[in-house]
Amino acid sequence: MLESADTELTAGSVSAAAAVEEPPDEVFEKRGMGVLAWIGIGWLSLVVLIAILAPVLPLKAPMVGDYLHPKAGLFSPGHLLGSDDSGRDVLSRVVWGARASLLIAVGSIAFGTLIGGFLGLVAGFKGGLTDTVLGAFFNIFLAFPQLVLALTLVAVLAPVKPSGGASSGEWGHRILVVILAVGIVSVPLLGRITRASAISWSQREFVMAARAQGATSRRVMLREVLPNVVPAMASIALLGVAIVLVLEGALAVFGVSIQEPNPSWGNMIYSQLSNLNSAPAVWIVPSVLIFLSVLALNYLGDVVRARFDVRESAL
């Protein structure tokens, strides 16, 4: 197979040669990344917008069944994206679900970025004992698979009620718990990246120079190192949001994400596992939303990384 045809193994393939010759900016432009990146940003803005505007959008009530039209298909009159077994409107649920899923994803990564970013920055900048201790702390949390750690924390911090809870207080509490739990899980990940990046930047000449000129180390850390560490944090944070969007669904599979009848993208998918055929729209629509949003985030994360030359090895 490999030897056939006129192709041949070449030591300097086109792409690699191009990568060597071109400055990074040109790579960026030439491959038409601009357009795709903008589509990604557009899509994510749209999702965020409808999640924010959910209360004022002309939607059906997400938790009220329409017993006359259960299991409506896509594009049915009255139910644009169909309805579920009890006639609840999928469009409405998916919009309200976006609220829950995005809150969890963005909230927990914001938490992780703040805490992890701070710890990583300090560890990388200070070095020495601080670094050793924080590094050990990160490593211990990294000794659990992410899903297992998140699952455990949610399960313990907010035990599942046998009856399930529908009150809005319950909704808010659970979202907070999930954000906290997933946030904790993301701390060591973000911390480690920030630390690696902070270490490499702290050794640059201009940082040394600033220190030599007698700037306080806090000032050097915040003014000189932090701005340069931000791209690495941003690209990982984008990927992190994507990971948590997926993770929320996994938590739903274990029944510890948002509780029925409140919607989240994850629990909409999971709620249908026992009867996939009856109303496929209920799980296909949120699946597609997760897929597209994750795709957009992954792509943008890559773009940021390529743009700012964040090294994979630091990850």
């Binding site: 994507a242 249908q272 699946s287 897929f291």
Partner: peptide
């Protein structure tokens, strides 16, 4: 890479 395991699983199940 952007398709969650549970979506793949669900699609296959269906």
């Amino acid at each position: 890479l952007s398709i969650p395991v549970y979506v793949t699983a669900t699609l296959m199940l269906l």
